[in-house]
Computed example of a mutant assay.
Amino acid sequence: METCIINSPLGFIKIVGDEDGVNSVSILNSEEKITDIIPIELEDCVIQLNEYFEGSRKQFDLKLNAQGTDFQKKVWKQLAQIPYGKTTSYLELSKQLGDVKAIRAVANANGKNPLWIIVPCHRIIGSDGSLTGYAGGLHRKKWLLDHENPYKQLSLF
């Protein structure tokens, strides 16, 4: 398994993977040493994440190898279908998966998503439009949603 640390506008990102694909992408809450030489297996991921943060990439095209239960993988696959700049709710996601009663299980699987940004769990909001819990912190979720919003609002202050 190869690992690298890169910097982003939201903090340090840890990427783990091998020739079978990217296993995890996670935001770190501490300052880390940035990797000098990116392992070849992780180069595409680093390039695509940088493009995302620069605003030139709206969709990822990576070989992924996240580990989880069959149900979690089903939820993550559905999350990956949420278009850039769009949001949905846990309730809607549960409906799309065919079981409205599975809302808590869907929320739990969403929270265990190992592929931060690439599988866009930040695009899940409350049914009332509120920002709901986010493992990376609500300030990061807000930043990501603002970053993807096609209608940029200028601040007066």
Rank of each mutant, 00 (worst) to 15 (best):
M1T: 13
C4Q: 03
I5L: 11
N7D: 13
S8H: 07
P9S: 10
L10E: 12
L10V: 15
L10M: 13
I15K: 02
V16Y: 06
V16C: 05
G17C: 10
D18R: 10
D20Y: 11
V22C: 05
N23P: 03
V25L: 05
V25D: 00
S26Y: 03
I27Y: 11
L28Y: 06
S30A: 08
S30V: 15
K33G: 11
T35I: 13
I37E: 14
I37M: 12
I40L: 09
E43S: 15
D44C: 02
C45G: 00
V46M: 03
I47T: 13
N50I: 05
E51Q: 14
E51N: 13
F53M: 09
E54F: 07
Q59K: 14
D61K: 11
K63A: 01
G68F: 09
G68N: 07
G68W: 04
W76Y: 05
K77G: 11
Q78S: 13
I82A: 10
K86I: 04
T88S: 12
L91C: 00
E92N: 08
L93K: 02
K95T: 04
K95S: 08
Q96S: 05
L97R: 01
D99H: 03
A105C: 01
A107R: 01
A109P: 08
G111P: 08
K112I: 00
P114E: 08
I118Q: 08
V119I: 15
P120V: 10
P120R: 07
C121K: 09
H122M: 06
I124C: 12
D128P: 08
L131Y: 15
L131R: 11
T132S: 15
A135T: 14
R140K: 15
D146V: 00
E148R: 09
E148P: 02
N149H: 04
Q153R: 01
